[in-house]
Amino acid sequence: MQTGFLTYLNEAKAVWLRDLRSEFRTRYAINAILMFAFTTLIAVSFSLGSFRIAENDKPFLYATLLWIILVFSALSGLSRSFVKEEEARTIDILKLSANPIAVFLGKLFFNLTLLLTLEVLIVPAFVLFMGYHIQHPGYFVTMIITGGLGLGAGTTIVAAMIARANVRGALFSALSFPLLFPLMIIAMKGCEKAALAAEIAGWHEVKIALAYIVIMVTVSVMLFPIVWEE
C-alpha cells in the first residue's frame, strides 16, 4: 500500500517538476498572475491610499481587498496548467503515460507553487503600500498560507474540467467562484481578526480553511480520473 502511494508521489513529483521547468522557460502562467496582481495592487493603493480610510474600517477593508487581489490574480492564471496541455496537444502523451492521480497531484503542487510565489511577492507589498498593521502576525501568515492552499485545492479540479471547453477563461471564473466563495469569506475574516487585537484562541478560521482543503482535495482526487478519461 505504502509502495503504491510512494509511486504516486514520485510520479506526481515528475509532473510537478516538468511543469515548473516548462513554466520557468515560458513564463506562461506566472506572468499573467503577477501582472494582474501588481496592476490591481497599484490601482488599489493609488485610489484608496491609507490616509483616506478611517482606522476602524481598515482591518475589514484591507482584508477584503487583499483577498480580492489574491483570488482574482489566481483566477487569471491557474487554469493554464491544464489548458496549456490541451493547446500544445501534449495531453494525449500525458494520458498515455501517466497515472491520473499522479497528474492531478502534480498539477495541484504546481498551482500551489504559483500561489505561494504570488503570496510571497504580493502580501508584503500590500502590507507595505497600504500601511496594513497586523496585531497577530503568526495568525495572519498562517491564514494567508492556508487560504492559498485552499485556493489551489479549489481551482485545480475546475481547471481540469474546463481545459477542453471553448470559452475557458469565463468558464473557469464562473465555475471557480462559487467553490471559492466560502473560503474567501473565511480568509477575509481570519485576516481581519489578525489585524485587530481580537481574540484568536482556537484558530477557528484556520481550522475551517484546513477542513476546506481536505474536502476539496479528497473530492478532487475521487473526481479527477473521471474528468481525465472524458
Partner: peptide
C-alpha cells in the same frame, strides 16, 4: 505513434524522455 501526438516543445529530447520514464514509474 500518431501524427496528432505531441511532446513538450519547451523540453529537450532527453528531458522529454526522462519525464515520460518517470511518470511511467
Amino acid at each position: 505513434v500518431a501524427p496528432e501526438l505531441n511532446l513538450y516543445d519547451e523540453l529537450s529530447a532527453r528531458e522529454n524522455l526522462a519525464f515520460l520514464m518517470q511518470v511511467r514509474g
